[in-house]
Every structure is written in C-alpha cells, then in structure tokens.
Design a protein around this nucleic acid. Structure first.
Lengths: 330, 330
DNA sequence: GTGAAAGCGCTAACAC
DNA sequence: GTGTTAGCGCTTTCAC
C-alpha cells in the first residue's frame, strides 16, 4: 500500500522475506553454490510471491559478463552485410541469444581488421565475437582477452572454435555428380579471392579434375548476379567447349544461368550449371538449380551457443555436411 | 609498471589524473551537464592518455537503460522466424544498434502474446521492443513501461510509433497497372487472415475493382510456395476466366506462377501474375516477376533508431512508398 | 562549475 | 550451509 510497493523487488527484498542473507538468496536463485534444500525453497517461494525478477544489468556488471555477441563480417566493404546469408546468421544467433538475455550486434570489419579488433577487445559489453570469413592471419592477431571469446564461421584455429560447412567435400560431391552425368569440360566459377573459404573448393576441384585427366578451368567470381553473368561471358569466350559450370554460390550460378540463356545456350542440354548454398529460391529458377544445401541456421546457432556457454567444449573444428540437391540444371 | 597497470582504467583514474572529481569526469565524458571547457579538455586528455574506455555494463546499470532491443515476431508459431524477411529486419536492426552498444534479440510471440509481453515488461535488459505484425488489440494491451519503448512494423497506435510500407497504395498501384494493361478479371491472393496488414490491401483491391464494375475475387493465401500453388488451383477451378492474379507476396506469386505453368496456362499471355516485396530473386524467375519493391532495410533501421533515440520524435505513423517494378509477368 | 556521497542491484571472497 | 562485507564502475542528486 505504501510507496515501497511501486519499487520493483530486489534480491534484498527476497532475502528479507525469506529471512536469509542477500548472498544466500543470490546463491539460491543462481542455482549453484551450497544452499540447504529447504532454504532454497524458502527463497524461491519468496521470489515467486514478490514477483521478483533478477536484473540482468546488475548481474552483468557484477559478473563482468558482456551482454552482446558481435557478429563481425570481414570483407572489402560494408556492403557484405547486405547478403541474405548474413541475415540468416544474424537471426539464428539472435534467437539463440535471447533466452540468455544477450543481444546481437552486427558489424562490418575490414580485411585488415587490426584496429577494429582492438576496439572490440576493450569493449566490456562484448560477450563474444563471431567472426565471419576470417583469415588465419586475422585469427592469430586477436588480442588474448577477445580470442578466448571468439568463434569463427570459416577457418578456425586451435583455440578458436570454428563452425562451417565442409564445402570442400560439398564441391567434390557436385563435381562427382557432374562427371557421373558425363560432363567432361567442367569449369569452376570460384568465389572472390579475398574470401578464405574459397581455397578448399578450388583445391578439391583441381584435384579431382586432374585425377580424371580433364582440363582445369577456374574463373574468379564474386557473390552477385553480374559476377555470374561476367563469368559466363568469360567462359564462353575462353572455353566454348565447356559443358558444365560449377559455381561456388547460387547467386553467381543464377547469373551464369541467365547469361547462358541470353547467349542461346541450352541448360542443361548444352551446359550444366550448379550452385552452392541452396538459397530459398534456387528451386524456383527455370530450370530449377541443382545445388548443395547447407545447415546455415544450425551452424549459426551452434556457434552462438559455443560463445554463450564456453565451458561446454566440443570438437574443433566442427564441419557440417553439405547435401547435393539435384534439380534440373544438371 | 606495477600491478595497477594491468587493471583497466576506470573513470576514477581519469578523474585522479585530470585532478577533478569523479562526477566532473563523468559529466565531461558524457558531454552534457555543465563543465568548464578547460576542465573538459583536461578530462578528455587524461582519458585519452590512460586509454580509458567507458564500461557499458556499469553505465547501463547506473542509468537503468536496457542493453538489448527485442524483435518480437507475432505469428501462429515459431516458424515465422525462418522467413527471410525476418533476417533482413534483424540484421538491419543489429547494424543500427551496434554503435549504441546495444544488441538485438529475436523472439517469437504467439497471437495472444499477453503473458509473453508481461515477461518482456519486467525484463530490465530490454531497451526497446520492435513488434512485427501486431494487432491493435496487442498494442492496446501493452504494459505501460513497455509501451513507452515499443515501436511497430505494421499497424501502430497514437503512442506506439509505427513504420511500414504503404501497402494499400502499393496494391492499388499494381491493380491500376493491371487494369491499364487491359486485365479485367483480376483475382487477389491475400495474405493469411491472422496477419493484420492484409486488410488494407484487400480493401484497396475491393474498392478499385468495384469502382471499375469488375468482379471481386479474393482467395486467402499464406506465405509459402505451396500456398501459392493451392491458390492457383483454387482460382482455375472457381473462376477459370481469371486473366490476372495479384498476389500479396512474391513467394506466393511464384507458387502461383509455377502452378499455372504446370496447368499449361501461359504467363503473361493468358494470365498475368504480380507479387509484392521484390525479394532478391523475383527478378530471376522465368518469366521475371512483376512486383513492388519495399525499403525493408530502411524501415527496420528507422524503427531501430526510434527505439534507441526516443527523444527524436518523428511523424507517426510513418509510411514508406512501395514502387512498382514491371517485369515480364504482367 | 565542481565535489561529496549515495546509490544502481547483484555477486563472490572469506569468515564462521 | 550461511552471513558479512567489499566490491563491480558509473551516474546523479544535492550542496557549495
């Protein structure tokens, strides 16, 4: 009835009602440390009765735990944040972080992120850093405090847990599939050179192609449609006998597809085209794109959990299988 | 050189070096309140020299400001979070919040979100709530504390800033376009009934159609491909003379498109099809989808800023124009 | 304009 | 097992 009722109850109030000290109340609520079962019950009952809710702000300060996970995307410029892939990662992380009272921030990091990482390293609000597309160099230059709370979607390091699709195996499977279908002149449209994760696939392609005694043909692509179109132009000019194009991402593949059509090349009759990622609309193109599907949400969520609960150590690096989805373009 | 150097400098250290009190140092750093210019300079210099970085955790506690914005998506079940649209919103918000030291959490809210909102209302870590697809009923039931820090992407209220596409005008423009092209039997595939933002477009469609003395034909759709396919089946059966389908979302439109093709219906020759949203791959379908493009990122970012900086009042509700993109399906 | 001091609400040594 | 106590680092009245 008095003004005191307007105040939200603090743990002090709970302690008073439960007739214990603040520390005991704290222990009882937290669930660790030694508290007599009966005492805990009393505390919990008091909390319940008062409608007590712990204040995450105070908790964070006292524990010295940051309240946000930063998703840091390394790339040549901030436009990398516009990629739908980033949206999937961010939303996956945001969902996993929510129950822990943690939020997600999204930030572009330049290819030489040294100073940006230094800034992150002395931001006490940072609970963890999820690095997208880091190079080994970047990982090794991480300040210690930050390193111990970093994970990577891409290449990792012994002390930086990494989560990624096994795209080497994925690309290999696609190539096998193309060979099985009788394609002999398979050209690869690789990702941009600055992207560390492109090297594995290129190597896999090279290895299997050479082993089969077939010609190795790699053209560097990017991530968007025009890149794919340019790649198609390049291929047609350079190696007109190409009978399959293995692109490292769906968007590029779709660019290749449209450009080939414009040139009057029949897909898949003249040339097969494959993508990678299985974006939501890969199945909607005409013809529908053969690609490889990745558990992006799963990866993002596992990575987020690794950051939130670092004590639970898992095998590192963690690689997720990519599954071939054969549609109509191959 | 001593152990003290390992400790991160606090504002206390800054104050000592600048030879002022903690409060003055605090004021100087914050930038408001009265501080003599010279004093401020001294403080700033000291901070600089010590490499002082404010601790957002302590700041949050002392100021009583939450550290995360919750994006709450209202829908029948948690699967609504998988929509790519959510990814775009989340990443947009996360980017804007980052510089403010704030994170984003993502949470599904049931159609009757009463208790979920109550929980949010006494979570002190919540800086703001961004509601997606709320109904007026939901808005009016918001607890006061929460209401004053809520914004909506969808319908709003006098005291809840809302940000949304003017989809009524958008749909009207599409319909006008179809009429201009000579379509006379335009059927609409509306969004799901639980989605509040579907009523405006339906009304707009009804009004203009009736005004033109043409038949009103609405079928309820959902958000995914199968919904569009079902809608197409329904239309062909019910109103075989339909010569245009106005769908309220691109994915549904693409479903309609593929299903029509399977039925041997030529698009756009026999039937025109239009979508809404201009998802990244609307331009890649064959034929390319005519649709309307929306500034989703802009909306999300503006809404986030409204939450972070509530003092900067803007007109409410805020409506963003949708722009017709005529491609090949109409 | 500046300083003293009282919080913000919770946690975690440490002593009992 | 439980309580005492000293923080966590910053903000903000309120005097002067």
């Amino acid at each position: 009835m008095t003004g005191a009722d307007l105040r939200r109850p603090t743990i002090e109030d709970v302690a008073r009602v439960a007739e214990v000290s603040r520390s005991t109340a704290s222990r009882a609520m937290a669930g660790y440390g030694h508290v007599a079962p009966l005492t805990r019950e009393r505390v919990l009952a008091a909390a319940q009765r008062l409608g007590y809710r712990t204040n995450p702000l105070a908790q964070a300060l006292a524990r010295g735990l940051g309240h946000r996970v930063v998703v840091g995307v390394i790339g040549p410029d901030a436009s990398v944040l516009a990629d739908p892939f980033i949206g999937r990662v961010t939303s996956g992380v945001a969902r996993v972080c929510d129950p822990a009272g943690v939020g997600v921030a999204l930030r572009w990091l330049p290819l030489r992120p040294h100073s940006a990482l230094a800034a992150l390293a002395d931001d006490r609000s940072v609970r963890g850093l999820m690095l997208l597309n880091p190079t080994r160099g970047v990982l090794s230059s991480l300040p210690d405090w930050l390193r111990s709370r970093t994970c990577s979607i891409g290449v990792g390091a012994p002390d930086v847990p990494s989560f990624d699709v096994d795209n080497t195996a994925g690309v290999d499977a696609i190539l096998r599939h193309l060979h099985d279908r009788g394609r002999r002149a398979v050209a690869m449209v690789a990702g941009p050179a600055w992207l560390p994760c492109t090297s594995g696939p290129v190597r896999a392609y090279r290895l299997r192609t050479e082993a089969a005694g077939l010609p190795v043909r790699v053209v560097r692509g990017g991530f968007d449609l025009p890149d794919g179109r340019r790649a198609a132009d390049h291929l047609l000019r350079q190696w007109p006998e190409t009978d399959a194009v293995l692109a490292c991402c769906d968007v590029t593949a779709l660019g290749v597809l449209t450009r080939l059509r414009e040139h009057g090349v029949a897909v898949p009759d003249d040339v097969a085209v494959t993508g990678f990622d299985d974006i939501p609309f890969a199945g909607l193109s005409t013809p529908a794109l053969t690609t490889s599907t990745n558990p992006t949400h799963q990866i993002a969520e596992d990575a987020a959990r690794a950051l939130l609960y670092p004590s639970v150590r898992k095998p590192n690096p963690r690689r997720y299988p990519s599954h071939l989805v054969v549609r109509q373009t191959s």
